[in-house]
Amino acid sequence: MSDELKSGSNLEKVFKGGHFAVTCECGPPKGADIEVIKKKASYIKGKVDAANVTDNQTAVVRMSSIATSAILIKEGVEPIMQMVTRDRNRIAAQSDVFGAYALGIRNMLCLTGDHQKFGNHPRAKNVFDMDSIQLLDVVRTIRDEGKVNSGEEVEGGIGMFLGAAENPFGDPFEFRVHRLAKKIAAGANFIQTQCIYDMDRFKTFMKQAVDMGLTEKCYIMAGLTPLKSAGMANYMNKFVAGITIPQPLIDRIKGVEKGQQTEEGIKILMEQIEECRNIPGVAGAHIMAIEWEEKVPELVERAKLLPRPQV
């Protein structure tokens, strides 16, 4: 990886400093209530290196990720602005990237986005003018060459630390690492993976990535979600595509009393973080405690990841 900073964001500097990075999620409200964001920011401030701001995740309408990110900056939390191609074509996407940079946003996660079928407007027309890989390529070109997709020069360039997601558990498995390579070639500086429960498969995936030299070019963060109950584990295993939870893990949570299941889920998370830190090539943990931001400080603390490095 080159020594030159792409954006100079906190997250980038943490990676550059060789620290094990920690990020979490901060979902915008389903409306214009700024207090929700301020509250969430107060929980996670100083506890993580940056926080992902989701972009109408699962196609449910929420406050825009750009606006929420800008508010987070004011609140002292560094955002990773997510952007999906489901809702914007190449014109809107590039325009939003300029706007985001102007508002001080320095990390961006490029996604294709969940299909609108899963959201609260399943009758909407989707855009998908491009996919996540092409979006990475477009933003990288703006950043590195100062040109928009049409080839015209930009008035004032951007510095953006570019991220992407990858699901090591999608099929066909043997192609997943190649898709990761495509994302890195398109411009991804860091990767956050889909929730990991099947550690063996993730280790195989990481070994492939290391062997292909991908971890030399990009920081890979392990995506982890604490299981709050046996019910949640069952639901995710059955209904969330691309997520498989090994039966022994479900049995382990089922095995404890109802009131203790959340604690057991957190214990599992701690073991997972510890395990990930020892996998070659893993540069950080992305803790997706969905709508559970108040728990993040405890999780990070118990994982012995505090204090966060000052870079």
Binding site: T112, E166, D171, P172, G242
Partner: peptide
């Protein structure tokens, strides 16, 4: 379903 040109996306499971 997403007309993407660099698939498969993460939502592909068992074909």
């Amino acid at each position: 379903s997403k007309h993407i040109l660099n698939g498969p996306c993460g939502g592909s499971e068992k074909g």
